[in-house]
Design a protein around this nucleic acid. Structure first.
Lengths: 346, 346
DNA sequence: TATTTTTGCTTAAACGATTAAGCAAGTTTT
DNA sequence: AAAACTTGCTTAATCGTTTAAGCAAAAATA
């Protein structure tokens, strides 16, 4: 069997030259480095013959660049993030980068661990979907001068590059849509989180009610703890329906919340949209296959992912960096679950 | 601001010793290498003080081990594989390994590219969910003595380590279950693929009919090209229903097929299970939220992933390797979509 | 013809770690 | 007091690349 690993040294030996020449030729620097035509050809042939594969490790050690991006997402089991991951991976590859994915599971400690592991794997930079209470980590990255771009979630009080959906606008649109379609008592189930994107979604919802002259009731807004979604959602729905102003529509702030919610709604034998109108953030096959297709806010996943990679790569390759803060629009996909309750004037 | 990157050299300098001593101390070899107590303490303090993080790159270059596993899966957008990926990642981390994930998108060329990229990123070994026509790649890995474990799919004619579900048995059970519940004309929609696991699923289906004295009809088995699922499934269902022996139940060989199938079944306004019984491979929220919860074959995802990692790590750390070929059982989760058609004797 | 320039190559240091080998002291054994 | 260990450290090679600097021979210029 052939040698375990063929290095530049093997080629040099076989060609009867120094390793330097081989390196020059194999990196296309024959002209600048004044390598003879014949010997250049010979080196190339031998390299091909031995099926030489350069060691990424050695290259990286020398250059200080690994051509690797660390992608830290909040939850890989959420299809939204899984898709983001895929887009990022593809786009990175197109730019010559490999991606190492880590899921923080919405947990700041895990996120910190991931960052540490990836930093001393020498990733060139990060794309991060932040989890709650991870502000300090972002500050650390800035202090250490490690390039990164925040994705989907960002901290308004920390000046960083980010690419995100306009969560406020999305939520506002969803609320307005429900009002226009005749729903009068619109509830929202959200994560009990200080994360800005969640606060924005809530703010958008409340403003949409206010601007449409609907009196917001405290019992309509239910924050659910992220680690007890299933039960939290159940209880929230029960309460929303039991109040003296029972809701006739619910806006779910995330995909996971709506999945739990729809299960419970089925269980209660409520009909959508007759008994309860539904709009949800996120997108998934579930929403198409549910007996009543679900109206949802479609985030521009591909564009989000691509732009994040593009931004990061720009930061990595050029050193001028005008900070970029990009907000994108979500699209409201109208389905049966938020159908107009009765003919409404427009 | 502090130095960009602190190396063993910086510590040595500050402590007034050679780099060798630092290395010994930081690797806990103080005893074997007879390092003085005082200086050892001093070195540790300085390392902590400077927040020294060893360069994984340099370590790997020296040792030839990267402590990285390459995970190549057939399709990251399929929740089954996404979950597998998550399990593998967690289990690997528990063993001190990092995972680099790549999706081959069921394409042999892409799979080959991924292997190449990861090989010269020097991953220590692979866990692979093979795509069609990638046998040669498996042979190459064997020739190059690169450790790997096949996951979920394997090639019976190539002796390799693998961890897989017993696809034959799963399919056989599903078929038998439908027969027992009174379905008489059971169709199957599968991928048009030579992959062994798919052939096994088909064989299990056919054997279950045979053993239950049901005359298999050629029109009941529909292979669908993997890159035209949506239309392929539509056509298949239409044909199955139009034949003179129209099916009264369908077994879907994969999650993606059933999602497409259910959409079309909705569109045809067929009722499940009254008009059509359904059993599917794979598992997902879809199956719970569909108006009629879907009976499915639940593969032991966690155990599959963990075992694969365990096996690979064993191959990487010890050099004795009795080949391991592990088959696990899928569990049939019975839901309403394959309800007994009428009271049946058991 | 003497000098400069160009051409085609080699040498060697560097990236950051590990580790076998070696070398002075100090300590123990005879 | 000579021989033999021990102790506590340093030196230097190595992993696979890149690249600045240097050097001799050939070619161009004076």
């Amino acid at each position: 069997m052939s040698k375990i690993k063929v290095s530049i040294k093997d080629i040099a030996q076989k060609a009867g030259v120094s390793t330097a020449l081989v390196s020059y030729v194999l990196n296309g620097k024959e002209k600048e480095s004044r390598v003879g035509q014949e010997i250049a050809l010979k080196i190339k042939q031998i390299a091909a013959e031995l099926n030489y594969q350069p060691s990424h490790l050695a290259k990286s050690l020398r250059s200080g660049k690994t051509h690797t991006i660390g992608l830290i997402i909040a939850d890989i089991s959420n299809p939204f993030f899984a898709n983001i991951a895929r887009v990022v991976e593809d786009e990175a590859k197109r730019n010559g980068y490999t991606v190492i994915i880590g899921s923080s599971d919405e947990n700041a400690d895990k996120s910190r661990d991931l960052l540490d592991v990836l930093i001393n794997r020498q990733v060139d930079g990060f794309i991060i979907v932040s989890s709650e209470n991870s502000e300090q980590q972002i500050h650390n990255l800035k202090d250490k001068n490690i390039p990164f771009v925040l994705l989907d979630r960002y901290f308004p009080e920390i000046p960083t590059d980010f690419v995100s959906t306009d969560h406020y606008k999305a939520s506002y649109d969803a609320g307005t849509h429900l009002v226009r379609n005749g729903y009068k008592r619109i509830g929202m189930i959200a994560y009990d989180s200080h994360l800005f994107h969640m606060q924005e979604r809530i703010r958008g919802y409340r403003d949409s009610l206010r601007d449409n002259k609907i009196d917001f009731q405290n019992s309509w807004l239910k924050p659910v703890k992220i680690n007890t979604i299933e039960n939290g959602v159940k209880a929230s729905i029960d309460e929303m329906l039991a109040s003296d102003q029972p809701v006739d529509a619910i806006l779910f702030a995330t995909y996971s919340l709506s999945v739990s919610g729809l299960k419970h709604i089925n269980h209660l034998r409520l009909r959508v949209p007759e008994d309860l109108g539904i709009v949800s953030f996120g997108q998934a096959e579930v929403f198409e296959l549910y007996y009543c297709p679900i109206t949802y806010l479609k985030q521009p996943i591909v564009l989000l992912g691509q732009t994040a990679v593009e931004l990061l790569v720009k930061k990595l390759t050029s050193n001028l960096n005008e900070p970029a803060q990009i907000l994108m629009k979500a699209e409201l996909i109208e389905r049966a679950s938020s159908k107009a309750k009765y003919s409404v004037l427009t």
